[in-house]
């Protein structure tokens, strides 16, 4: 048997439970998503006019209701797509080092291998391969389902289902894998490491998400209250002051600009101020990243998450190099 073949088989045997569980999870999720795709497409084919939520067509009540029910359930599945990279990354990553230490096999493995980094790289490479293949399936099936679920939207330039479809799923999975390996190597016990890795991933990915939101403000445009925001990503409400300055509600409060009334999109301190433009506090506005920037933002976040993955992998390698084998 070739070296690659025996590497694949041995690596699989060492992680068979996790790999089989992950593959089974992806198979079930994908099958369910594809079933919904088929159902939604069939409904659309029956009467395309009835599945456009923006248009009301007579005689559509039943079909529309059925479409709504199905697409709501499909939306729930999309959250599983969102969750899958974190779950799979951690489940595959955490035991890589921690189980070796817990089972006292690390001593053997680390003396048989030329270097621990080499050992880690070989073992991690298999998991990366498995994870990329499985998450690619999830990512692609997510895209496939999104189209019939949102038939009126141009999803190549739409933030809908952000992180629940497309390549970001794979990149996030790799970061979770790196985090799992690192925490597993640090704690050297599988279940506590998994628990800590879950907490750490919540913190890290929330941090990245908040950071990305802040960074995206640079790409955002200010839109009027009633403007069409289809496909865009709302970053929140802002107040446009008469001076042209854009501030958020917290800043408004800090400046003591109390308002009591919003009339249309205008903020007034008191009802009697309405119409007196010299007393206007400001305009209610939305900060929106246009849908046309979807691909670019996905690439940017992928780069940030990818960089984090590299850092986590390096930290894991450094940790394994210095780790006592238990």
């Amino acid at each position: 048997m070739s070296r690659i073949g025996s590497w694949l088989i041995l690596s699989f045997k060492l992680h068979r439970w996790e790999v089989l569980a992950a593959a089974a999870g992806v198979a079930i999720l994908s099958a369910a998503m594809l079933w919904f795709t088929w159902q939604l497409r069939a409904l659309s084919a029956t009467d395309p006019g009835c599945v456009d939520p923006a248009a009301y067509a007579p005689g559509c009540s039943q079909l529309g209701q059925r479409f709504y029910e199905l697409s709501s359930k499909a939306e729930l599945l999309s959250y599983l797509s969102w969750l899958s990279p974190f779950v799979m990354g951690l489940v595959l990553g955490v035991p890589l080092v921690s189980r070796e230490i817990e089972h006292r096999t690390a001593g053997l493995a680390w003396t048989l291998s030329r270097s621990r980094t080499w050992w880690l790289a070989r073992r991690a490479a298999f998991l990366v391969l498995v994870l990329v293949v499985l998450l690619l399936v999830v990512a692609i099936v997510g895209e496939v389902l999104a189209f019939p679920q949102m038939p009126a939207q141009h999803l190549d330039r739409d933030f809908a289902w952000y992180g629940r479809r497309g390549g970001l799923i794979v990149v996030r999975g790799l970061a979770a894998l790196g985090l799992g390996i690192l925490v597993g190597a640090w704690l050297g016990r599988v279940l506590p490491a998994l628990l800590v890795a879950i907490f750490a991933s919540v913190l890290i990915f929330s941090g990245i998400s908040l950071g990305m939101d802040r960074w995206m403000e640079g790409h955002a445009i200010v839109q009027a209250f009633d403007a069409d925001r289809a496909g865009g990503r709302q970053l929140g409400e802002r107040i446009l002051l008469p001076s042209g300055e854009l501030i958020d509600y917290g800043e408004l409060q800090r400046r003591g600009l109390a308002y009591e009334v919003i009339q249309d999109d205008r903020l007034w301190a008191r009802p009697e101020d309405i119409g007196h433009m010299d007393r206007l506090i400001g305009y209610d506005r939305y900060l929106v990243v246009p849908g046309s920037l979807y691909s670019q933002i996905v690439l940017d976040e992928s780069a940030v998450v990818g960089g984090t993955t590299v850092l986590l992998a390096l930290a894991a390698a450094a940790f394994v190099r210095r780790r006592r084998p238990g």
């Binding site: 409400e237 958020d248 509600y249 917290g250 409060q253 308002y259 009591e260 919003i262 009802p271």
Partner: peptide
């Protein structure tokens, strides 16, 4: 308090 004073939640509801 705002609601009671105004008798409407316009403005008050926007409280972030």
């Amino acid at each position: 308090a705002c609601y009671q004073e105004q008798g409407t939640d316009i403005g008050c509801a926007a409280s972030p």
